[in-house]
Nucleic acid binder design. Structure first.
Lengths: 246, 246
DNA sequence: GACCTTTGGTGTGGAATCGAACACTTGCTT
DNA sequence: AAGCAAGTGTTCGATTCCACACCAAAGGTC
């Protein structure tokens, strides 16, 4: 296996670190593959490891104690899963599961917390990402309150698209329904609309983004805030160089 | 004016500090009254001051660039408004406005950031509160996706009740509609239901909490997570000594 | 090729909420 | 006392989405 270095690290958050800070982290980082559906951190369970995805997408799903649930955010190679452990939070209310399989750099939560106590730059970077993640959550709250399923679907596809290579997203209507907290048949109708307008192409178990620009326009204001926030306070968000537009 | 001390400080977050940390903050804190409707921090505007409420309630409202808006959180004397400034975030996507008038301790955002760089305990406390606030946001997202207006209204009343003295909340149906992102008439119907069940008493411009326990049961799982999280990672939440129950 | 599971397409009835309108009440202002 | 604005009660058709059901198509397995 290639030795991990700042140059070959594909997690955008870690890439923001300066050499000395990175060197403190490096010996504790381990590359681990996660398959589709794998749970990375369970809800209300001690956080053992913190995860920095290099590829793939992790979904954050909140389930209330009466069983209703919704996706409240997604994290890809631009961020970190379980970052709150850096300031001593030992469990999370939501669970984090791989929605698109990929590779993550992991580190013991305890070690990360110690490092954050000693290295203010690492602490600050994670704090800022947690802030972006919170921004994503509040925009999700806004979207759930005020936007139609079609607009929310478009938003979700864009957020996914930001975090993968290429234009094809593998998922079923059923899964999308769970993510958006709507019936599967409602998703079917919404995808038909988007496909009818030529914005996406839908195949069995796969959706292809065709016209990203128009998709973005269709979301109204439901997409973009956390992406802009990321670029402002952390760094480049989409590797392709194509910045998220508000 | 009484000299500010750890003993007479009514902000629960600051009360968590140890004497030396508090003494670093003290000379920079100023008590300011805010009236109903006052904006404390505007959206996308440089954060000048950070606010620690001692009484009153501050609403966090997010508005998308196409004009739709929703309340995504509230902060009272248990927390801080603009705490993200502590890790160098210079603007917020949402605006923060006083929903119930009250007094706040304010500090220059810049000075707070410097203090957080030097005092890890202060930094950690604020980071943890930001985590609780994020938890509130994700529960709002879940509530907006999966709960009825009646359940969300009950949740909102409980959250308000947690942050005031007494059982009376002054507000209009119109205002509630804005907060919950529903029509005013929908609020009227929902309050009738709650009043019919004897859980609240509604008067012109005022709602009185009558049966808190039942109200809590009615919310299903929409209420409670951030409150439990606060008690777990920060400290006592409701002064009355009556802990939030999940 | 037969079978079976997964996924997608479609329809129906009903609940929740919207959007908009109008009347009534309350309390303040003049 | 009259007038007015703000807050509330109420109605009603339109819309979105739920809840449930059932069938069709695709793709894997034997």
């Amino acid at each position: 296996m290639l030795k991990l270095s700042l140059e070959n690290c594909r997690n955008l958050l870690i890439s923001q670190l300066k050499e000395p800070d990175f060197e403190v982290l490096r010996p504790h980082l381990e590359r681990i593959d996660r398959a589709r559906g794998d749970t990375v951190i369970s809800a209300s369970t001690h956080i053992e490891h913190v995860w920095f995805p290099e590829s793939g997408i992790c979904s954050l799903v909140l389930t209330s104690n009466d069983g209703r649930s919704a996706e409240i955010g997604i994290v890809g190679r631009e961020g970190v899963v379980g970052g709150a452990a850096a300031f001593g939070v030992d469990t999370l209310p939501h669970s984090s599961l791989m929605q698109v399989p990929g590779t993550c750099l992991t580190i013991s939560a305890e070690i990360l917390r110690d490092i954050c106590d000693r290295r203010p730059e690492v602490n600050r970077l994670i704090s800022r990402f947690q802030h972006v993640l919170a921004t994503q959550a509040i925009q999700t709250a806004l979207a759930n309150a005020n936007y139609t399923v079609e607009e929310r679907l478009a938003r979700w596809l864009l957020m996914c698209h930001d975090r993968i290579d290429g234009n094809e997203i593998e998922l079923t209507h059923d899964f999308l329904g769970t993510m958006l907290s709507v019936r599967r048949s409602t998703v079917t109708l919404a995808t038909h609309h988007l496909e009818g307008a030529g914005l996406i192409r839908a195949q069995r178990g796969r959706i292809t983004i065709v016209q990203r620009e128009k998709l973005q326009r269709l979301t109204g204001g439901a997409y973009g805030m956390p992406e802009v926030e990321y670029e402002r306070i952390i760094g480049p968000f989409r590797q392709s160089g194509q910045a998220a537009r508000c």
